[in-house]
């Protein structure tokens, strides 16, 4: 588009000079003909090129709307306000069904507002490791682990969208179908597909407006929610002691993507550019959690307990990966002495 504008701009600027002679007119016509031919022959984007837009568009586009998230028979509608301004992301999600909860995000700071318990601020999380830089530079080799195929164009929430199927090349991860809005590349619909082809979860905008005009008031929680102390909310262990652990196995392509700012080393997130999982390694205190696997839509939580030096540790792997993958990751965790 910008190239086309550029060509037309040159032609317009050339018109007064060319119009002084007949040969100039012919030259102008020839230039316009060539430029139109060049525009017509410009190949459409490949799936890989569209995927390169995915991550930046999610953060750097300002929009508001309503999306629906479904898994199985569960449906949740959420209103979202997302503003990118001066390099900062502010986001507010409002639950529209059931309890009236909210999630407020200010860059890496996240506050959850529960209808009954008030506000809870989560630990700051920072993108970590080589993955973060690779992701920002659009070098993440997503297509190394997934086979991309362009689907037919569709219309989502009133906008034309490009569909991309990403079929997992191994059974360590799920497949995806993504739809990106054509102008911005914003993800407007996604489906996570299980190994046997069943759709495990869907996310889709039903109402969407691209706008830079999102006032601060729309990014703030509505007044009236009771603010409570963090200690009132049961959190995974907040022990100040650093837990030493190492990962014996992880699926190919997954690299460290994020970690809490705290130095307790209790959690690290890994991603292959599409799927992600988090590993939590913490001393088991207070609540005795069972061992086993729980699945909610595309999300798997695998819990394993290890006893070391008279202390029981709970290893929890949570992510959008098959249960076997989560179990293998959890079983590969080794605690330091």
């Amino acid at each position: 588009m910008s190239e086309r504008s550029g060509i037309m701009g040159c032609a317009e600027r050339a018109v007064p000079l060319c119009c002084r002679s007949r040969s100039g007119e012919w030259l102008l016509c020839l230039l316009l003909f060539w430029s139109s031919l060049a525009a017509a022959e410009q190949p459409s984007k490949t799936a890989e090129q569209w995927l390169q837009q995915l991550a930046p568009a999610l953060n750097r586009t300002s929009y508001k709307g309503v999306f629906v998230y479904t898994r199985g028979n569960d449906v949740n509608s959420m209103r979202i306000y997302h503003r990118y301004r001066d390099g900062h992301v502010r986001e507010r999600l409002v639950q529209l069904d059931g309890a009236n909860g909210e999630i407020i995000r200010d860059d890496n700071r996240v506050v959850c507002i529960y209808p009954n318990k008030g506000q809870v601020q989560l630990d700051n999380v920072i993108p970590a490791g080589p993955f973060a830089e690779a992701f920002a530079n659009q070098l993440t080799p997503v297509t190394r682990w997934y086979t991309p195929t362009l689907l037919r164009e569709d219309r989502i929430a009133g906008y034309p969208a490009v569909g991309i199927e990403l079929k997992a090349k191994d059974k360590d991860r799920y497949s995806y179908r993504l739809w990106l809005e054509k102008n911005t590349g914003l993800l407007v619909r996604s489906e996570v597909v299980g190994v046997r082809g069943h759709t495990l979860e869907r996310f889709q905008f039903t109402d969407l407006t691209f706008t830079d005009n999102i006032p601060d008031s729309e990014l703030e929680a509505k007044p009236g929610n009771r603010t409570i102390q963090r200690e009132d909310i049961r959190q995974p262990d907040a022990s100040p002691h650093r837990t030493e652990w190492s990962m014996g196995w992880k699926p190919a392509g997954f690299v460290a993507a994020a970690a809490p700012v705290s130095a307790r080393n209790e959690a690290v997130a890994y991603s292959d550019g599409l799927a992600s999982f988090s590993v939590f390694v913490e001393p088991l205190k207070g609540v005795d959690m069972p061992s086993g696997v729980s699945r909610i839509g595309a999300t798997t939580a695998y819990l394993r307990k290890i006893r070391r030096n008279n202390t029981t540790f709970l290893i929890t792997v949570v992510g959008e990966v098959p249960p076997l993958t989560a179990r293998r990751v959890a079983n590969g965790i080794e605690l330091g002495h």
């Binding site: 989560l122 999380v125 920072i126 993108p127 993955f131 994020a258 997130a269 550019g273 959008e320």
Partner: peptide
Amino acid sequence: QHSSIGGG
């Protein structure tokens, strides 16, 4: 939180 911030 990890997925949304670190995983893009």
